[in-house]
Amino acid sequence: MKKITLLLSLLLTTPHVSAQIIWSADPNQSTKVGDFFKRFDDGNYPQDYCVSKGDEAGVTPSSVSVVTDPEFGKVWQINKPKNRKRGEFARFEGLVNSLSPKEGDDIYIAWKWKIDTQDGAQIDKEITVFQWKSASPHNQNYPLNMEYDGDLTLNAFGADYEGKVGQFARRAVLWRQPVPQNEWVSFVVHIKVDKDDFGGLVRFWFNGEQQELDNLQSKKYRVKLSDDHKTVYHRTNDGRFVYPKWGAYNKKSCHYNVNAYFHDMKVGTTLSSVLPE
């Protein structure tokens, strides 16, 4: 009964919820991570070590809290300390609000985001802040991600069916934009979920404006592009299933005590349902 009551509250009191919104994570409705996400990954030692296996002793775990932002009110804050490899929300499948992407889905993932460091240090090594991740066994590991080092990039990763090509060599940088630390920006990522090579599609909006995309930097993989460069054709489904991750991750993130903030996180079936106000 408690879960039903909370779900009714979400539907009746959240202004963004409509028939076109199929998932959202509003800390005004609940501050429990498990109501909206499958889990929070705070560093899965010993797999996620920064220096050497077993270095978890004395390393503060990553954490999630809800803080009050002067512009948006309650927002999610992830803190990933130094010498911790990851702090990430994982998957849309919460106890109250749940979504499991599948082949053929056509969805718009939207959120507002900013990043800073606990000690004021500038992030100048590329850390991962968003993953469109595939569950193993997989050929891509993550078909898409976003990385930040003062510039923010949107990246596509080609499939490696024979296990011979490294992840970095299969990366195509689609978009790059300088983004200052401690400044709110908004994203919409449109994904058509498809396992065929170049069968899926990706479109991207930054601060409400659709962006042109290209193979800005690539080695062994290049996406296909529409004539206007607004649509990327790319394999967007991989492994047993695909799912999102938001936060801070990778070996380079070990250097930083990172705070990542999230607001207005939602998924819709149309662009108009998720574009920032």
Rank of each mutant, 00 (worst) to 15 (best):
W111N: 11
V165T: 11
P180H: 05
Q167F: 14
Y148M: 04
N97T: 12
T68W: 00
A135R: 14
K74S: 14
P61Y: 09
D151Y: 11
G166D: 10
R91A: 13
Q181N: 04
V67T: 13
S136K: 14
Y161N: 13
P61E: 10
A169P: 00
I107D: 06
D160S: 04
V185C: 04
P61G: 07
Y108R: 07
R176T: 15
D149E: 10
E88A: 03
E93R: 13
N141S: 14
D69Q: 06
G158K: 03
N139D: 15
V189A: 05
H190A: 06
K133V: 00
V96M: 08
E126K: 13
V185A: 07
S65C: 12
R171F: 00
H190K: 10
F72L: 13
D105F: 10
S65P: 07
L144F: 08
F157I: 13
T153F: 08
T153A: 11
I107P: 00
R171T: 09
K102M: 05
V189Q: 12
N182T: 06
E126V: 09
V173P: 02
E162I: 04
K125M: 12
N97K: 09
L154F: 10
A135W: 10
V173F: 04
W76V: 02
L95G: 15
F157N: 04
E162N: 12
F89C: 06
Q122L: 09
L154Y: 06
F72H: 14
N83W: 08
A156G: 09
Q131I: 07
H190S: 07
E93K: 13
V66S: 08
M146E: 11
W113P: 01
G94A: 08
V188E: 00
S98V: 03
A172L: 03
K133T: 05
V165Q: 02
A159W: 12
D69S: 06
F157H: 13
F92Q: 05
I127G: 00
A156W: 00
K74R: 15
N182S: 14
L154G: 11
W111K: 08
G87H: 03
A169C: 01
D69W: 04
P178H: 12
Y148P: 05
S134Q: 08
D116L: 00
Y161T: 15
H190W: 02
G158Q: 01
N79P: 00
A90T: 14
P143S: 02
Q122M: 12
E162C: 00
N145F: 14
I191R: 02
G163F: 11
K80I: 05
F157K: 06
W76N: 00
S186I: 00
S136Y: 12
Y142S: 08
D69F: 01
S134I: 08
W175P: 03
D119Q: 12
K192C: 01
S100F: 10
W132Y: 02
K114E: 03
A169I: 03
K102R: 11
I127H: 04
T117K: 09
V75G: 03
F92Y: 15
L174V: 03
G150P: 01
